[in-house]
């Protein structure tokens, strides 16, 4: 047997940045950033230490939640939140359908497409809380501001996904229907809806989930719901009531997630 020589060392070729100077430069930059960022934290250890006791009390409140003392507030907030969630999801989905059709490149036309796309982009990049601030300023405190906020956010979310679905759908089916001389509405009804409907229902349920979670947040800026209850409880340092609210939120989110997963499976 001939003894051929083979290399006795092997290094894995670098995955991302082949040039070692750039690679080490990159690592160094990351390190410098992390140090600079951490230095801005400016932790007040004294204050944090004092806060520990309060943290302990909160943990205790979470373990021994008090549902009864503030039950009136909690149930009121809960009903408001659920109301907002359901109405805004339904209104949002219904309004998202025309916007989504308008934002789909293959069935829309120039100006309509641009307007719908712009609406979607704005709605998606603004935090729900920021929108809530504006609506509270316009229509006052209460669940109506929450409803408007969540509807606005739902339109952006649903319209974008809907438009993407329509753009990806099987063009041949729509083509075949167009060839029969069908009107635009008939095209939507026969060519688009059957393909998009199951996904639409699935996404609506997913959005229902998100809207409930968000409804717990926008109350903090005055848009009603269980978030307002939670905010009050924390302001009053009633950690056991706050714990109760949080547990209710977690349980409801778990329930809706389980339920919507079940329904999604059933629909598809």
């Amino acid at each position: 047997m001939t003894t051929q020589r083979y290399p006795r060392t092997w290094r894995r070729p670098p995955v991302l940045i082949p040039d070692p100077r750039w690679r080490w430069g990159f690592y160094l930059a990351v390190l410098i950033y992390l140090l600079a960022a951490s230095s801005t934290l400016d932790v007040n250890w004294q204050r944090a230490y004092e806060g520990l006791e309060r943290g302990g009390r909160f943990a205790m409140g979470f373990l021994q939640p008090d549902f009864t003392t503030r039950w009136r507030d909690i149930s009121l907030g809960l009903v408001e939140s659920l109301t907002m969630t359901l109405t805004s999801t339904i209104a949002g989905v219904l309004l998202a359908i025309p916007v989504g059709l308008g934002a789909a490149r293959n069935i829309s036309n120039g100006p309509v497409y641009l307007i719908c796309r712009a609406f979607v982009a704005v709605s998606r990049s603004l935090q729900e809380v920021i929108i809530a601030i504006l609506f509270v300023a316009m229509v006052g405190f209460g669940p109506l501001a929450g409803f408007l906020t969540l509807t606005f956010a739902t339109i952006g979310f649903m319209a974008k996904l809907l438009a993407e679905d329509i753009e990806e759908m099987d063009e041949r089916q729509a083509e075949a229907i167009r060839a029969t001389g069908a009107s635009w509405l008939q095209l939507i009804h026969v060519g688009v809806m059957p393909q998009v409907m199951p996904r639409l229902i699935g996404l609506s349920l997913y959005r229902l989930d998100i809207n409930f979670r968000e409804s717990a947040v926008i109350g903090i800026v005055g848009a009603g719901g269980i978030g307002a209850t939670l905010n009050t409880a924390i302001d009053r340092y009633e950690y056991d009531s706050a714990g109760a609210v949080l547990i209710i939120i977690i349980v409801i989110v778990m329930a809706t997630e389980y339920l919507s997963g079940y329904v999604r499976k059933w629909v598809q």
């Binding site: 204050r47 520990l52 909160f58 903090i220």
Partner: peptide, 16 residues
């Protein structure tokens, strides 16, 4: 389940 704003609300109460 709990939004970061709610976590922040709690943590500000605890940590300042």
């Amino acid at each position: 389940s709990i939004n970061s704003l709610i976590w922040a609300l709690l943590l500000v109460a605890i940590l300042g």
